[in-house]
Simulated assay, not measured.
Amino acid sequence: MDGTNQTTVTEFIFLGFSAVLYLRLTLFVVFLTVYVLSLMGNSLIIFIVLTDITLQTPMYIFLGNLSFLEIWYTTATVPKLLATCLAQAVTISVSGCLTQYYFFFSMGATECILLAAMAYDRYLAICSPLRYSLLMSLQVCLRFSAGSWIGGFIAPLLPTILISRLNFCGPQKINHFFCDSDPIFKLSCSDTFL
């Protein structure tokens, strides 16, 4: 301890957008509209893939997974984004910030892995059309999907654990609308090298 009086930060403040009220309200309406349309569109895709038996092929199962993922990916950040549009400053606890960080990056990692699996599926369909149904059976497709979700949730685990061990003692303001690693590192009074 260096003898200075330091207060441990227990919550962060998202500064969000401009102080101009009409601009924030306009952004709120735009973001809310896009968010609701995204939820409706992705839910519709999931519903159609689940109910239409002819669409229960690997390509559409992957698309259904991607739609489900997109619902949760946007939901990890958009509610706080909407709150920052309505208020000039919105608070989030440090644990809430870490939870948001983990889920945001879990969904991002899952999306990357899932897109790679989808690319492999299309590669097999184009380059090995006669053996495609043997190589990409429903069981293999479901394993790829499950592996995408499991791998996506494991990938950001270590960085999240390391970030959770940081101490925050400086200004608690984040000039952003969600918990990203760079703003979190800037607020830490611990060594962030690792």
Rank of each mutant, 00 (worst) to 15 (best):
L25D: 14
L27H: 08
H176I: 08
V30Y: 11
D191S: 15
L158V: 04
Q172F: 08
T99F: 14
G16H: 01
L166D: 07
G3P: 03
V90P: 02
C169F: 03
F47L: 11
I45F: 00
S188D: 04
F153V: 09
C127M: 12
I163L: 14
T192V: 09
L114M: 15
F47A: 12
C112Q: 10
G108Q: 10
T192P: 01
T7D: 12
C179Y: 00
S43F: 04
A117E: 13
C169H: 07
D191I: 07
T84I: 09
R24V: 13
L166R: 07
C127A: 13
L114K: 06
F103D: 01
S145T: 15
L162P: 02
L162H: 00
S95C: 12
Y101A: 02
L138C: 12
V20Q: 13
L162S: 03
T57H: 03
N42R: 00
L142Q: 12
C141E: 03
I61R: 12
G152R: 01
T110H: 06
D121H: 11
F153I: 05
T91P: 13
A19C: 13
Y123K: 08
M118T: 14
Y60F: 15
I174F: 03
F104L: 12
T192Q: 02
F103T: 12
L194A: 11
V29R: 02
L44Q: 06
I13W: 00
E111D: 14
G64N: 04
E11Y: 01
Q56I: 05
T57R: 04
C97N: 04
L81E: 06
F105S: 07
A76E: 02
I126G: 00
I161C: 02
S133N: 12
F17E: 14
S93V: 13
F193C: 06
M59N: 08
L23Q: 14
C97G: 10
S43I: 09
L98I: 10
L81T: 13
K173L: 06
